[in-house]
Design a protein around this nucleic acid. Sequence first.
DNA 1: TACCAAATTAACTATTTGGTTAATATGATT
DNA 2: AATCATATTAACCAAATAGTTAATTTGGTA
Lengths: 216, 216
Amino acid sequence: MNKDQKTEARILEAAIEIFQQKGFAATRMQDIADRASINKAMLHYYFRSKQKLFDRVFQYAIQQFFPGIVAIISGNGSAEAKIRQLVEFYLDMLQKNPRLPGFIIHEIQQNEEHFLETVVRKNPFQPARIITRFVEELQAELNLQGVSELDARQLFVSLIAMIVFPFVARPMVMGLFELDSEAFEKMMSARKTFIPLLFARLLQGQAENKDAEGGE
Amino acid sequence: MNKDQKTEARILEAAIEIFQQKGFAATRMQDIADRASINKAMLHYYFRSKQKLFDRVFQYAIQQFFPGIVAIISGNGSAEAKIRQLVEFYLDMLQKNPRLPGFIIHEIQQNEEHFLETVVRKNPFQPARIITRFVEELQAELNLQGVSELDARQLFVSLIAMIVFPFVARPMVMGLFELDSEAFEKMMSARKTFIPLLFARLLQGQAENKDAEGGE
DNA sequence: TACCAAATTAACTATTTGGTTAATATGATT
DNA sequence: AATCATATTAACCAAATAGTTAATTTGGTA
């Protein structure tokens, strides 16, 4: 029962690795078995089917990705503090799991309805509610600082985009900026200060100057 | 030779649709044939193999996505004007082809080396060079405006992220903000003014106030 | 109309791949 | 040591799927 645990864990680890890299459809059970240095039949012995094994991996990924946001933005503190926490927490986590968001995004698209049902609607944490509340906080802060022309919802999407996108598009970013893995990591570390700085600049008071230059 | 063209075009159209939605691995030749209302053998008659058909679709996608950036940022005009053009051009294009970036990103990851070789290194337009040049322009602009603490490369990545990410993560965005397709489209349209506004705020002069508040 | 090349189809083949099974190894317990 | 449940393996099976082929249709041309 000890070696049992070990084998099951090895399989899961290998499955995470390969499913996250290649996605459900391109993954072969044999690839997973090879990576775990184990007979293919063991995958079925422990997890019944490819779909069930995948489900475990996917659920684990979701668990790794979403609760963090919810916890941080529903906490106490200023909007700006929460933004700093989000950036810190997610950039750290994504540096350790760079393929996580791409995997989640791709698989959600393969089965959009399943995601909406389980992660959004049936979720007792009601992420949609919590996000709405945070966006309202953020909008209040923007209004207070005299930058009410900026829509908080758009800004929130932009924040997540700035954090997550470089990892989703990692090969593209590395290619177009001619970075190796090390340089990419450095760039992402630097982002931990860049993004909060950018937001500080955006939120930074213009309170007395209530009307901005007229746009087109 | 007329009906010929028509059939070949129908196949390509169907292939684009399905490959972009499901990716190479999850796509079945039969699905494409069904969508084109045509016998599966015709796919091989016109395109030889799944891989060759896919290559056409992928190349077309790359052609649709990358030259725009290169053309815009290597043009004349201020950095800010180029940013406005990028936003306008890409948001329009992505509203018409919302699955394009997710497709490209996912398939690049499946064959990273092939992408680096063909799109980045062997590309006569030398996108890496052109991007570097634009980043330098942008940095100059930032320095001029007294916001030199903001790194232009990070800012450029952020710009692309803000434009592209919502489409890559479309189902997630729609789910978490409880939007239907129409509401999502509206949000993306609004983004055409939001992003330039955000950048205007960032770039907007602080030229006289050369030293910013000290960080933590 | 007769003919012919190109287009199209139904049926087939070969291969890949998820899943099963029957036989064997392992290691704890009596 | 003998026993027994559990873990592991090699060999196998069945379904799915890319790709082929041989026969048929189509539509223009002599």
